[in-house]
């Protein structure tokens, strides 16, 4: 029995942790920069494939590849925001219209990124072996690669927490997410902050992709699934709430690990029922304001 519980907890933490990373990334982009980034999952895919390429072709350790991924994905995100979205913002007068149009642009990006990736990396599943061994706690076999992923997820989350709460930039981001107009008046360069938020969102997606490639096979059409998960978790947690995304992601992970043991095929059904009930009980999300 205790074995089962240990398994459920670990499984829930591992997938939940990855979901939380992805969702916190989208929260940065949607909660602060007001971009419902439908191409979020494509950044996950790009992170996964960069890691895969560096690992299999250049022989670099996946962990090192993950670190290389971070500036790459950040730059892609930052530049995209500084060019495309900044231009859109200048051209679009109202906030509502901006949100709609920003989503459309991210749709266009999704098509382009996915298609280019498919041209480069093909459509077949890819993967590599990393830390594929296990140790036992009691009778429970625990895979080292999954545990390692959990470990990295926790480290990243802690760093992210300190960044948001202890640095000037983090404070500027939090101020901008609460009231962009007031933050602007306080002397915060709002456009730069938003571009950085978008870049950070891309980093978190890239890291999640790197981590996923360590424990699962990857393919160029994998992005959409994760975008959907992130969208749901972000809203479930409460718009713009980073702790909300963390909690939402973990809930999702635990629902998965529990339902997996009852009837694996019911997983998505239970998951969506839960989301809808939670939304009805708390119309502003779990930790929404």
């Amino acid at each position: 029995m205790s074995n089962k519980i240990l398994q459920i907890v670990l499984e829930g933490l591992i997938m939940g942790g990855i979901y939380a990373l992805i969702s916190m990334g989208l929260t940065m982009q949607y909660g602060v920069a007001r971009i419902l980034n439908v191409s979020h999952g494509e950044f996950i895919m790009v992170g996964a494939f960069i890691t895969w390429m560096l690992t299999t072709m250049a022989g670099i350790s996946p962990l090192l590849a993950l670190i290389i991924c971070m500036p790459v994905t950040f730059l892609i995100g930052y530049i995209l925001h500084r060019t495309l979205y900044k231009k859109l913002k200048d051209l679009t007068p109202s906030a509502g219209a901006y949100e709609g149009n920003a989503m459309l642009i991210s749709f266009g990006l999704m098509f382009i990124i996915q298609s280019v990736a498919q041209k480069i990396w093909g459509s077949s599943p890819q993967g590599y072996k990393y830390l594929t061994f296990s140790f036992k706690i009691g009778k429970t076999a625990i895979a080292v690669n999954r545990l390692f992923v959990l470990f990295v997820t926790i480290i990243i989350s802690v760093i992210f927490y300190f960044f948001l709460n202890r640095t000037r930039m983090g404070k500027a981001i939090r101020a901008s997410s609460q009231d962009p107009a007031a933050a602007g008046m306080m002397g915060i360069k709002i456009n730069r902050v938003m571009a950085i938020c978008f870049g950070i969102g891309a980093i978190l997606a890239g890291i999640a992709g790197s981590l996923l490639s360590m424990i699962n096979n990857i393919n160029t059409s994998m992005g959409m699934n994760y975008t959907v998960i992130a969208l749901i978790v972000v809203v479930l947690g409460g718009l713009g709430s980073i702790p909300g995304s963390l909690v939402g992601g973990l809930i999702l992970g635990f629902v998965g690990s529990i339902v997996n043991r009852i009837d694996t095929s019911l997983y998505m059904v239970v998951f969506y029922v839960l989301i809808m009930v939670l939304l009805l009980v708390r119309p502003k999300g779990l930790l929404g304001r």
């Binding site: 969208l231 989301i275 809808m276 999300g285």
Partner: peptide
């Protein structure tokens, strides 16, 4: 009771729920 994006995600969840439920 749902407003804004919360309504959007609820309607989205509806599609996924139906798909998975009918599949099951």
């Amino acid at each position: 009771r749902l407003r804004g994006v919360y309504f959007t995600i609820f309607t989205f969840g509806l599609v996924e729920l139906l798909r998975n439920l009918i599949l099951w």
